[in-house]
Design a binder for these strands. Structure first.
Lengths: 68, 68
DNA sequence: ATAAAATGTCAAGCTGGCTTTACATATTGA
DNA sequence: TCAATATGTAAAGCCAGCTTGACATTTTAT
């Protein structure tokens, strides 16, 4: 799974810290998401996508053969 | 957050057990999802939605004011 | 050049998503 | 009616998502 968080964040002129605050998560969570280290909850994925006016599928990109 | 898993599962003629097996999760996980007890990972949400040929937003419905 | 801001890594800990097992209560069908 | 199948609850445990804090490196701006 890839995601466009870093790109969207920069397009919106936000730092990792600012994005973390808007989402009420830690900055480490943003770093880990941007560097693809995990598989967030759907609620967090929705909050991020929604903040940028996108759908979850716009922001998070899954591979066809993707398993757990 | 609501979801349409129970409805979609029944439309596709699947039992909870069968759906659990197709997704490689436990039946308890399906029950907990259907009864709204948790906030799955985005990967599981995607696997479920994709199995039914839907987008995540088709299956999981968020409220505008939804917080963590 | 140099200070400040932004990004990143590491590590320890908490929490809740998810598993497993066991049992109880519908629901279906012969 | 009786058994089989489907759904639900409860409880204990594991693990990865997420937090916190401290520090290192890179980027930006003066």
């Amino acid at each position: 799974m890839e995601n466009k968080i870093s790109q969207l964040r920069q397009e919106h002129g936000l730092t990792q810290q600012m994005l973390a605050e808007r989402l009420s998560v830690s900055r480490q969570t943003i770093i880990s998401l941007e560097t693809g280290r995990y598989n967030p909850s759907i609620r967090l994925a929705w909050q991020i996508s929604h903040l940028f006016g996108k759908t979850i599928e716009d922001v998070f990109i899954f591979q066809e053969d993707e398993k757990k």
